[in-house]
Design a protein around this nucleic acid. Structure first.
Length: 307
DNA sequence: AACCGACTCAACCGCCTGCCT
DNA sequence: TAGGCAGGCGGTTGAGTCGGT
């Protein structure tokens, strides 16, 4: 037996709200509030609507200080960063954007932003990403267990190798990532920042070292056998990767395996947009273990064990 | 002018969570 | 502790609009 409906489906009106209904709802809530009971609210104000419908109408359209349309570049950036970090948690993303609703952001992402990312503008962005693994940029992990690891996309235009950890982390994103760490599937990936020309990731070195230790010599197989949709879907594309198959390369591959919470569509978008090789360069950030928490217990990677 | 496909976005559906009794 | 309920949420739908032919 299914769940009882919240209202009599036959007795309530559906479809677009009329200006009169809007006026009644808005006026009532502004004077009396919702009374902490949306279900009974329609009866109280005398409109034939489902309580949930009233709630949605108020939250998404009628409540004050809402912004509609016209997303700024900064908002795009925040949405992209958070989507990549936590996925389609629209309400959480909306909480970082005052005046925006989860519904608005969801629609915007699904209809425009996602495409924008892979549009020509996006391609131009991706063309700036060189994706080869560079060895020698990481230290021996066991000798530096308390350091964070940063993976960056190398800027192909400038061929710049300078570490990107001088970039200022958006404090919103950083604190958000810390607060929401329990919700982030992959503890290694602590922050992900998206900028027009750069994508960079902040990696918890403790977690990385620990996981690496438990999954010796991860290789390409660890990706293709991962339950991650990224690993699965991108497996046929792996030849696009330029690998330095040495110890450091293995470490880099481990980090690759840690990208489970990058959304498949983003990752595959990069890959299937063809041509751009994807890669990551590890650099080291010294004495900046600012995340300062023990997350090793969260580690549970479905990695292929070569042993 | 008419048709048609693509796009947008408000609204709905149904599941999940957490609170209350 | 368990069950019921409302709120919250993400996925999906479909009517309206737009642009191309």
């Amino acid at each position: 037996m299914g769940r009882a409906p919240c209202c009599d489906k036959l007795a309530v009106k559906k479809g677009p709200w009329s200006p009169e209904e809007d006026a009644v709802l808005k006026s009532y809530i502004e004077k009396h509030g919702t009374g902490n009971n949306w279900i009974s609210l329609p009866q109280r104000i005398g409109i034939k609507r489902c309580g949930k419908s009233c709630r949605l109408r108020w939250l998404n359209y009628l409540r004050p200080n809402l912004k509609h349309g016209g997303f700024t570049d900064e908002e795009d950036y925040i949405i992209c960063s958070l989507y990549i970090t936590i996925g389609s948690r629209w309400s959480i993303i909306a909480s970082q954007l005052p005046g925006r609703t989860d519904n608005d952001i969801k629609n915007y992402w699904n209809t425009r932003l996602k495409k924008k990312l892979w549009s020509k503008q996006g391609k131009a962005f991706h063309q700036q990403l060189n994706v080869k693994f560079e060895h020698g940029t990481t230290s021996n992990m066991s000798s530096s267990p308390n350091q964070n690891q940063i993976l960056v996309f190398q800027d192909e235009n400038t061929k710049s190798n300078q570490p990107l950890y001088n970039q200022v982390v958006d404090p919103t994103i950083t604190s958000f990532a810390m607060e929401e760490q329990s919700m982030i599937k992959n503890p290694i990936l602590e922050t992900f920042s998206f900028e027009p020309n750069k994508v960079w990731l902040d990696i918890d070195h403790d977690a990385a070292a620990s996981a690496y230790h438990h999954h010796s010599s991860p290789s390409l197989n660890c990706l293709t056998t991962s339950s991650s949709s990224i690993g699965t879907n991108s497996s046929t594309q792996m030849s696009n990767f330029t690998l330095n198959n040495n110890d450091y390369g293995d470490q880099e591959m481990f980090f690759m395996a840690g990208f489970e919470n990058l959304q498949a569509e983003l990752f595959n978008g990069i890959i299937n947009n063809n041509t751009q090789e994807i890669g990551f360069r590890g650099t080291e950030m010294l004495n900046n273990n600012y995340l300062d928490h023990d997350i090793s217990s969260f580690i549970d990677y479905p990695l292929y064990n070569n042993e």
